[in-house]
């Protein structure tokens, strides 16, 4: 790729008018070639991301016959909801989807309620052990789920909590809590401390300042973090398949029946699981860097 020289000379020695015109043209062309090549590359990568989603969508909205057919169409013509209907009316799917939603909602409520005070403490207080706690939270976030799922399953069996929707939600809360705490902390850190001080100067107790000033300003960020929590729980499959037997969540149910089911079921299921993640990215786009960027710190 070519580079554009930034003009640095402040006292231009005036060359003839034609020469500058030619130079400008050449510089402009170099500039547009560079721009153009970046665009082409950007579009190729965008296509690489979008194409598989388009293809699975095509499958989900073709007739089951078209899904089984070969060679396949690359667009859903004729369009049909038959495949989706078939998937959604398969035994156990609606129940599994319901379980998934219930687990995800319990997870997001528990996780957010626990994370708000913890995130606030990390964002606002300097206290002995703060860095250790932060680091600890950061490292459990990278903890292998696999390690937790097996012993928890055994423990839940012992405590008569095995195969329960709420048990899985408890487990998912443990998995999402570190992330939620760090995201919520970064949201709180984004609310200037001066605002809180101003509230206290003008007559608020610390608790009231939190309620009147900090929380309203943090709400959009906390909502985004809750959506993230929801999606994390909705997507989680390893713990789900270990901790449940009859009360499968959607991914666990799909994974469990994968080798016994045909392509229409798989593709429709794959697409159905995508839906929340597509909505998710729309809602959290402003907070993208709150969520993942702060991993750097």
């Amino acid at each position: 790729m070519t580079t554009i020289e930034t003009p640095i000379n402040t006292t231009p020695s005036r060359p003839s008018m034609e020469a500058t015109a030619v130079d400008r043209k050449r510089a402009k062309r170099r500039h547009s070639i560079r721009r153009g090549s970046i665009y082409i590359l950007a579009c190729i990568i965008a296509l690489w991301i979008l194409l598989p989603i388009w293809l699975i969508g095509t499958m989900a909205f073709s007739t089951p016959e078209d899904v089984r057919n070969y060679p396949k169409h690359f667009a859903p013509v004729p369009a049909s909801t038959e495949t989706m209907d078939f998937f959604l009316n398969t035994d156990g799917i609606q129940r599994a989807a319901r379980n998934s939603i219930v687990v995800a909602i319990i997870t997001l409520i528990l996780s957010t309620l626990l994370a708000i005070p913890a995130g606030y403490a990390i964002a606002r207080y300097l206290f002995p052990g703060r860095d250790a706690i932060r680091l600890g939270i950061l490292s459990v976030r990278a903890f292998p789920i696999v390690v937790l799922a097996v012993p928890l399953a055994i423990t839940f069996i012992k405590w008569d909590m095995y195969d329960k929707v709420y048990s899985l939600a408890l487990m998912h809360t443990a998995l999402t809590l570190p992330t939620t705490i760090l995201v919520v902390a970064s949201v709180f850190a984004g609310v200037p401390y001066e605002l809180e001080e101003a509230a206290r100067i003008f007559g608020c107790t610390p608790a009231k300042a939190f309620w009147k000033v900090v929380l309203p300003l943090a709400t959009p960020g906390i909502a985004a973090s809750a959506i993230l929590t929801f999606v994390l729980s909705w997507n989680e499959v390893f713990a789900a398949i270990l901790l449940t037997l009859t009360n499968r969540t959607l991914p666990a149910q799909i994974l469990y029946t994968l080798d016994k089911s045909g392509d229409p079921f798989k593709f429709a299921g794959g697409f159905f699981m995508l839906i929340p993640s597509l909505i998710f990215i729309f809602f959290i786009r402003r907070y993208l860097f709150n969520m993942y960027g702060q991993l750097n710190k």
Partner: peptide, 8 residues
């Protein structure tokens, strides 16, 4: 977009 997509 793939951020929210599950491995399954």
């Amino acid at each position: 977009i793939p951020l929210g997509i599950s491995d399954l």
